[in-house]
């Protein structure tokens, strides 16, 4: 076969391959379209009605929702809750991942099991467990009282602090799993090479390990952010009625007040605000790890 015909043949084959791959993705795409896109469109359509009975089309629901300054605060609080949870999971999760890659294989298995175990329990169970831990008579208060750090029980339930603490634990696997999977693929010689060149542990951490683990860190942040901003059960059970986040607003409007157009507006606000933070985060992440994918 001549070189020329080789050159002609190759693009055609690649084209065929691409078509086959595209066909493989078809069932999943259809499922996504049916189960994800269609409800979203329905939601969009519902939001453009003025009344609870969904009879008069109009923009009244939008103007009503965004005319109320309280709702801005709710959106902001929701995003802040997500960011605080992300920060807490990074601060605790990153050192755990660092410890993980240094452990012998047998202990790594144990640690992975401990990390994954909470995911095997229902969120409801984990959330109620946190009530026991954080309550007035809970483990934390008992311990602090016993140690003499405090003289009367702290209020942790129905505070943002308590909520961030429990969400940090609940969402931790979502941070750790991508982080560990990226970090354990790093060439261990890189750390040794850096040390042999005279770099301290901290310099090696910040100039070699952190930049190279960026993809895992970004993925973990995105998952934790998306999951904690929409964690309706934990938000309402631990945060109570005083802390109001968007999921609660949506629930109230759709299942208590039965104002579906307003609930649709709130839902879309949640989707758009969470997605824009995620887009910003992943843009930053891609920029900082461009070298890895080229």
């Amino acid at each position: 076969m001549s070189v020329a015909s080789d050159l002609i043949d190759r693009p055609r084959e690649e084209g065929r391959l691409r078509l086959a791959e595209w066909q493989l993705a078809l069932p999943l795409s259809l499922a996504f379209a049916a189960l994800f896109l269609a409800p979203l469109l329905l939601l969009g359509a519902t939001s453009f009605f003025n009344d609870e009975k969904i009879t008069q089309p109009g923009f009244a629901s939008w103007t009503k929702f965004f005319g109320d300054p309280f709702n801005y605060k709710v959106i902001l609080d929701t995003l802040l809750l997500g960011l605080k949870t992300v920060c807490a999971t990074v601060v605790i999760g990153y050192p755990v991942a660092l410890v993980y890659i240094d452990l012998p294989a047998r202990l790594q298995k144990v640690l992975i099991f401990i990390i994954v175990m909470p995911m095997l329990l229902s969120v409801v169970v984990r959330t109620f467990a946190w009530i026991v831990v954080l309550g007035r008579e809970g483990v934390v208060n008992q311990l602090l009282l016993w140690l003499g750090v405090i003289s009367e029980p702290l209020r942790l339930l129905q505070t943002e602090l308590g909520l961030v603490i429990s969400l940090t634990q609940i969402e931790m696997p979502l941070m750790l799993l991508p982080l560990i999977s990226v970090m354990s693929r790093l060439d261990p010689n890189l750390r040794d090479a850096s040390a042999a060149l005279g770099a301290s542990r901290w310099r090696t951490l910040f100039t070699v390990i952190v930049p190279l683990s960026m993809p895992g860190l970004v993925a973990g942040c995105l998952l934790v952010f998306a999951s904690s901003t929409t964690a309706f059960i934990s938000q309402t059970v631990i945060g109570g009625v005083r802390l109001i986040y968007l999921p609660l607003v949506i629930w109230q409007q759709s299942l208590v007040v039965y104002n579906w157009p307003l609930a649709a507006v709130a839902s879309l606000s949640l989707v758009v605000s969470v997605l824009s933070v995620i887009a910003a985060l992943s843009y930053l992440g891609r920029r900082s790890s461009r070298h890895l994918h080229g």
């Binding site: 060439d187 010689n189 040794d192 090479a193 850096s194 042999a196 190279l212 070298h291």
Partner: peptide, 15 residues
């Protein structure tokens, strides 16, 4: 230790 080492896989910092 001021010991220079070249690894078999070079271990260049990829980023």
């Amino acid at each position: 230790r001021n010991v220079g080492i070249v690894f078999q896989n070079y271990a260049l910092f990829p980023h």
